[in-house]
Amino acid sequence: MTAHTQPVHDTLLTGIEDVTTGEGLRALLHRLHHGGRHAWQHDPQAAELMQFVAEKYAPLARKHGLDPWEAASAAFDVMRTRAAREAHDPWAVITHAVRITCIFEERAQGLLCSVHQARRPHVSAFHDPERFSDRENPLTDYHPAFHIPAADAPDATDEIPASERASTSAGSAVENAIALFTLLDWPADTARAAIEHVCGALTRAGTRQTAYESLRRDKHARALLDLPSHSWTALLKALLGHPHPAYTATGLGRGVLLRLLIGESLPVLLRDDDLVLSVSLAAPGRRRNRGDADEPRGGGSR
């Protein structure tokens, strides 16, 4: 007979439990849980299980730029929990937890912070840091934050370059939009993270319509920002404007950002009853507080 080496998943079938199935894994996890603090260290099938887990989640780990054993470590943490032991499908629970952990591990490496911080919406909403040398034109050459005017330089608006005036105007529009949402019962950190994320997507997309369609389908961003669906949709319509062509020339179609850029002030926006009502009603938590979580999505006339 020719000797050959069996793969890990075949070896596991000859053990006490067939951990490739949900029932077998659940039985093994219960046995390890009741075996004492050193059961995972001395049980031979536990070592085979971890080898199998590392192979199973290796593609997921590589997808996020991680070592397979980092995914196996995340799976090990989940397998010791009661939720995994008593789940109807333990593998589904473990796979979901490992996927989430890999996503935030990758996010933490990009943001140069801990995984715990990367899981927080107001931190993960930021883009990855960039080196000055990564840009063709150094940031210090054109960004006004790095410019120190001479003491005798004239303070005249006419002498400010158009690019700097546009940058200042855009920055003011973003801050005024954040202030508007904060005044209408949105939490300040949630409003800032969400609006800055929308502005970043708008910069990349180039047009409001393209940005709106992209963000409307971006469930990952909404999950990171921890916003319910109705709040996310209302925020996009308020900031970028209603996408229907019939509203193009109206305040509803222009959106808050464009209205601020073309000269409308924050007090003017606060006198827009339709805008104020839609933004305030969409504030996160308002529906739950008012007990109308079961209200139809369409809303209807009020």
Rank of each mutant, 00 (worst) to 15 (best):
Thr2Gln: 11
Ala3Lys: 13
Leu13Val: 04
Leu13Trp: 03
Gly15Trp: 09
Thr20Glu: 04
Ala27Gln: 12
Ala27Ser: 09
Arg31Ala: 11
Leu32Asn: 05
His38Trp: 14
Ala39Ser: 13
Pro44Leu: 12
Glu48His: 10
Met50Ala: 15
Phe52Pro: 03
Phe52Arg: 11
Phe52Glu: 05
Ala54Ser: 13
Ala58Thr: 01
Leu60Lys: 13
Leu60Pro: 12
Lys63Asn: 13
Leu66Arg: 11
Asp67Tyr: 15
Ala72Val: 02
Ala74Gln: 04
Asp77Leu: 13
Val78Phe: 01
Arg80Val: 00
Thr81Ile: 12
Ala83Leu: 00
Arg85Tyr: 06
Arg85Lys: 04
Pro90Ser: 04
Pro90Met: 00
Trp91Val: 01
Trp91Ile: 01
Thr95Tyr: 03
Val98Trp: 00
Cys102His: 06
Cys102Thr: 07
Gln109His: 15
Leu111Asn: 10
Ser114Glu: 12
Val115Cys: 15
His116Val: 07
Asp128Cys: 14
Pro129Cys: 08
Glu130Pro: 02
Asp141Lys: 08
His147Pro: 02
Ala151Arg: 09
Ala151His: 08
Asp158Phe: 14
Pro161Ser: 08
Pro161Met: 04
Ala162Arg: 07
Ala166Gln: 05
Ala166Val: 02
Thr168Asp: 11
Thr168Asn: 12
Ser169Gln: 00
Ala170Ser: 11
Asn176Gln: 15
Asn176Tyr: 14
Ile178Val: 15
Ala179His: 07
Asp185Ile: 01
Trp186Val: 03
Asp189Lys: 08
Ala193Ser: 09
Ala194Ser: 15
Glu196Phe: 03
Cys199Trp: 11
Gly200Thr: 13
Leu202Tyr: 04
Leu202Thr: 04
Gly206Trp: 08
Arg208Glu: 08
Gln209Lys: 03
Tyr212Cys: 07
Ala221Trp: 04
Arg222Val: 00
Ala223Pro: 06
Leu224Ile: 10
Leu227Cys: 08
Pro228Ala: 09
His230Ser: 00
Lys237Tyr: 10
Leu240Trp: 06
Ala249Tyr: 12
Ala249Arg: 14
Gly255Ile: 03
Leu257His: 14
Arg259Met: 04
Leu269Asp: 01
Leu270Arg: 13
Arg271His: 15
Asp274Met: 08
Leu275Val: 11
Leu275Ala: 07
Val276Cys: 12
Leu277Gln: 11
Leu277Glu: 07
Ala282Pro: 01
Pro284Ile: 07
Arg287Gln: 10
Arg287Trp: 13
Asp292Glu: 02
Gly300Ser: 06
Arg302Tyr: 13
